[in-house]
Simulated scan of single mutants.
Amino acid sequence: MRVGLFATCLVDLMRPEIGFSVLKLLEAAGYEVMVPEAQTCCGQPAYNSGERAVSRDLAEKFLREFEMFDYIVVPSGSCGGMIRQHYGDLLHNDPELNGRYERLRERVFELTDFLVNVARVQTLPSSFSGHVTYHDSCSGLRELGVKQQPRELLSRLPGVQLTEMKDCEACCGFGGTFSVKYGNISTAIVDEKCANIKASGADTVVLGDLGCILNIEGRLRRTGDSSTRVLHIAQVLAGDA
């Protein structure tokens, strides 16, 4: 089975090590993994800004680059949600493109959902240990139903102690362009999230979306917290943290 890895533009530009952790996990699960070199953005920033022509072009580009794979795996709930829930809105007026999209759509999975429900992994290449709390990223939770999957995978690491924080499903305040347009509101939201992380007693917060990582880690560091680790779940599961 061939898996196409959509690394996401944030991972590619900001934290490429996350992409290598994803690759390690997929190969350990027995899949042949391909990473199309021409891949760029899923189109979500343009879509959320009303730039439908740009986001439609990116949706069509994604189809060309990924429709040949048995599965497409995305280490991001927001990008996965864009592809699975919103490409249809962009392509529905073109029967040929929409048909191709509908055939591809059911093969697109967020990383932890794929590992649990498709690959059905029982063992993980990780000896990570620590006291963690988990932040549910908005798009992964609400658009893709990613909730128990990451927790099930973390439970397979005997060295992990998971403590749920208060309001683990509440937004971190990033929201893509929201954090740029409404900086004061975003800051107030992420301050609540950081307070809940600290109150959990965990020394590490784990999550599945790099936008949330950048927002939470950035705020923790700016407010003087230099010790709380902020990790993508792929890094934990692959033993790369």
Rank of each mutant, 00 (worst) to 15 (best):
I213E: 10
Q122C: 00
V74F: 07
T228L: 03
F174N: 01
T123H: 05
S126A: 14
V236W: 08
G183Y: 00
I18P: 01
G30M: 11
R120H: 15
P95S: 08
N48L: 07
S137G: 15
E67F: 00
H86C: 00
L207I: 03
L220S: 03
C172R: 00
G224F: 01
R2H: 13
L153E: 03
R229T: 02
R100T: 04
C41T: 13
F174W: 08
F128P: 01
V3N: 12
I216Q: 01
V132Y: 08
G88V: 06
S226V: 01
G140K: 05
C171A: 12
G239V: 02
L90Y: 03
R107T: 09
R2Y: 12
N196G: 00
V146Y: 03
N184E: 15
G19Y: 06
R15M: 14
L214Q: 08
D136E: 12
F66D: 07
H86Q: 09
S127W: 01
D203Y: 00
V118S: 08
R105G: 06
V54W: 10
G211R: 03
T133E: 07
V116L: 03
L97Q: 12
G183N: 12
R103M: 09
L220P: 08
H232V: 08
C172F: 11
F109T: 02
G99D: 13
R64D: 15
A234S: 15
A234I: 10
F109P: 03
C171R: 04
S137Q: 06
C138P: 06
G4V: 09
T133N: 09
Q85R: 14
L210S: 06
P16N: 10
L207T: 01
